[in-house]
């Protein structure tokens, strides 16, 4: 089995008819959205006080799991805190057999991992008005004083649940959403972003 298998991420139909909305074709829109539909996602469950578990994860991913609520760690992969015993490990691209190796690594512990790679997609937001857009649908205060690089929150955006990850300086945010809610969220962004100017890649 290889990555040569025919994959379709869930926003391909959306991408086909999306364009820049709300600002002139020449001007750079105040919000830019790119879809990343082929990352790998592992849902990880375990006791953070269990050294066997945390060591196993660290030796595999090369980084510690974040134990502080609503934070993430990132290097080769991004590990988002989802709950006191739950994390989402996100690898930037697919690699055959990686999950099986990861899973095996955890075999000797009480921790478990589930491959949910096909269940999520990432909408990468950037631009001056990216936070303004999120503020239209999210009740959380994403101001610098409370949301910084290394933070991630699970919350609602408009009418869907999503994870907002802050992994780079400047106006860059990753919105991780379940596959079947992604089109709704993208359409919502197209509507809600129009007043600022929004472009999709």
């Amino acid at each position: 089995m290889s990555d040569s298998l025919k994959r379709h991420h869930c926003l391909e139909p959306f991408s086909e008819d999306s364009a820049t909305i709300g600002s002139s074709a020449s001007a750079e829109p105040a919000i830019r959205v790119t879809f990343d539909g082929h990352r790998e996602f592992y849902n990880l469950r375990g006791d953070p006080a269990d050294a066997a578990f945390t060591d196993a994860v660290k030796s595999f991913t090369g980084q510690s799991i974040p134990d502080k609520a609503n934070t993430l760690s990132y290097r080769e992969c991004t590990t988002c805190w989802l709950g006191p015993d739950e994390w989402l490990v996100v690898y930037p691209s697919f690699e055959a057999g990686r999950f099986e190796k990861f899973s095996t690594e955890l075999d000797s512990t009480d921790a478990t991992a589930v491959d949910v790679s096909h269940g999520y997609i990432v909408l990468c937001l950037s631009g001056d008005s990216a936070l303004d857009l999120l503020a239209k649908g999210c009740t959380l205060d994403l101001h610098l004083s409370s949301f910084n690089v290394g933070d991630c929150v699970q919350t609602g955006i408009a009418r869907t649940a999503a994870i907002i990850a802050n992994i780079a300086e400047g106006d860059h945010y990753e919105v991780i959403v379940r596959r079947t809610f992604a089109e709704y969220l993208a359409i919502w962004m197209r509507h809600a972003g129009a007043e600022f100017g929004i472009g999709f890649d």
Binding site: T139, L140, T155
Partner: peptide
């Protein structure tokens, strides 16, 4: 809108609960 303090995440809007 009520704010509810999740013992793990802190204050969040009631719509999340």
């Amino acid at each position: 809108m009520l704010l509810i303090k999740c013992p793990w995440c802190g204050n969040r809007a009631e719509s999340e609960f």
